[in-house]
Design a protein around this nucleic acid. Structure first.
Lengths: 101, 101
DNA sequence: GTATCGGTTCGAGATTCATCGAACTATCGG
DNA sequence: CCGATAGTTCGATGAATCTCGAACCGATAC
């Protein structure tokens, strides 16, 4: 598992990418699960519990590359966190309205 | 030009559809132009001034079907309006944050 | 070391989406 | 009625995206 994955800097985050990442029901559900704090990826079930792991990993990739979440190695697991500070700074009010939805 | 086009009711508008519609730079630019009030479609230039009209019409369709804009016949033109009231009611704060972006 | 667990990456097939020309439609002006 | 204008719809092509299995990888447990 390739250690550190690339994350965009705050200054590189594009609004349209964020909107796209959140425009899928599964990915939106993931972001909502992370609203209450970081989560181990293993504990983060989207809607479908027996989703293939490659598909789940792909969801995380889209969210990560858009700048919505961080995905960092934690032992042999992955810690997922919502980039609330970055997103709130860049697009105030966006996350609040989307996660309330 | 087929008179009235179908628009979703307020209750039918899906957040994910709205986010998707706004996740494209051209479509987002259109929504921002409509933030200051209704506009004739002919006066609504997105980024590219000599965009094929079928492409432009397609942008409007995506925005309309998502519930972001209304597109109503007005003489031999089209009046475009942002559905701010519906979106503000359904997803408070969303439009403000996205249009500021 | 070996096995296992959690997860990423690669590759292929299916599906969706974008783009644009061409045909069509409705409205207004003359 | 005729032509021009403004815009939708259709159809085709190409580009992204989704989905998933298989292979791979890194950290831990044994």
């Amino acid at each position: 598992m390739p250690g550190e994955l690339p994350h965009p800097e705050r200054s590189e985050i594009q609004l349209t990418d964020v909107l796209f990442a959140l425009s899928d029901p599964e990915r939106l559900a993931i972001a909502r699960q992370l609203a209450d704090g970081p989560l181990d990826m293993a504990e983060c079930h989207a809607t479908d519990p027996n989703l293939p792991k490659s598909t789940k990993s792909h969801f995380m990739k889209v969210l990560r590359e858009a700048g919505v979440i961080r995905n960092e190695p934690n032992g042999r697991r992955r810690m997922l966190t919502l980039r609330r500070d970055d997103l709130d700074e860049l697009f105030p009010g966006l996350l609040d309205s989307v996660l309330r939805g």
